[in-house]
Design a protein around this nucleic acid. Structure first.
Length: 265
DNA sequence: CGATTATGATTAA
DNA sequence: TAATCCTAATCGC
């Protein structure tokens, strides 16, 4: 679920649902009892996404910092909400909608200074209008690490995860093991542009569909999960049918099409 | 019903 | 590189 598109979509939806009116905060599961008690009754003024980090700034100056990690999830319910389902770390109830958070890797009340620290450690986020594309290009062009590892490194570019890294390399026709410094400026710029396009599509659809739905002849909403990517987690390339190659990069598996992403060298 | 897996990231070794 | 944390869905027996 959670790559950058998920977080930016959540920011947008939760901004509309929660900002400007007091929220009722609670921790049905109990693991965030003190934080929820502190936020209860406070008025969120702004909600912001940076890469995979989500921030809610309250009128008091308190900031709620959430990172979903691998398994974290927000579920929207109608207010007043029904009994929580599963392990709900934080429930934020607004006037018409309630958001239930489970399984986050980070859920904390922090100061604006801490926000600066977190954001300062991130590379440019293609979903932010002010993102510094040049910085991404310059970083990748100088690094010897494989592009498949650099794309997962949040200090290089913020918001890309295991699905998008595989798919972006495929869409650019680049093998993920290619060292960053062996790529041309045009190739790196192409990766940046594709990242922005794909992440924006992800925000709009609220899911990752990197295949061109026209190639499948169905609307995006009816693309099955297993068909939604060209190479990620697939045995065969979704475009040409060639058996995919599995590569371990940055400690995780990624996939490539040997026919359309020739190995470097 | 237990094991495995997952779109993440940090810490220890 | 491996262990670890968070949770829930899915898979195999």
């Amino acid at each position: 679920m959670p790559e950058g598109h998920t977080i930016h979509r959540l920011a947008r939806d939760q901004r509309r649902d929660l900002v400007g009116r007091p929220v009722r905060a609670s921790s049905p599961q109990g693991r965030f009892a003190a934080g929820a008690a502190r936020l209860d009754g406070q008025v969120p003024l702004a909600t912001d996404a940076w890469g995979k980090h989500l921030f809610h700034t309250f009128a008091s100056g308190d900031v709620l910092h959430v990172h979903l990690g691998l398994i974290g999830r927000f579920r929207r319910r109608t207010s007043p909400p029904p009994e929580p389902v599963g392990a709900v770390r934080l429930r934020m109830a607004g006037a018409a909608s309630t958001w239930d958070l489970s399984g986050p890797i980070v859920c904390a009340v922090v100061t604006p200074d801490r926000v600066d620290e977190v954001v300062g450690a991130l590379g440019p986020d293609p979903l932010r209008p002010d993102a510094d594309a040049e910085a991404f290009v310059a970083t990748v062009a100088r690094r010897a690490a494989p592009i498949g590892a650099l794309l997962l490194d949040q200090r290089v570019v913020a918001g890309i995860g295991n699905v998008y890294r595989a798919e972006l390399c495929f869409l650019a026709g680049i093998h993920p093991a290619t060292p960053g410094r062996d790529l041309t400026v045009e190739q790196i710029t192409r990766l940046w542009d594709l990242a922005g396009q794909q992440l924006r599509l992800g925000v709009r659809r609220n899911r990752i569909v990197t295949v061109d739905p026209a190639e499948l002849g169905v609307p995006p909403s009816r693309v099955r999960r297993a068909d939604a990517t060209y190479v990620y987690h697939r045995d065969r390339c979704g475009r040409c049918g060639t058996p995919t190659e599995v590569v371990a990069l940055a400690g995780r598996r990624t996939w490539a099409c040997p026919a359309e992403q020739p190995r470097p060298g």
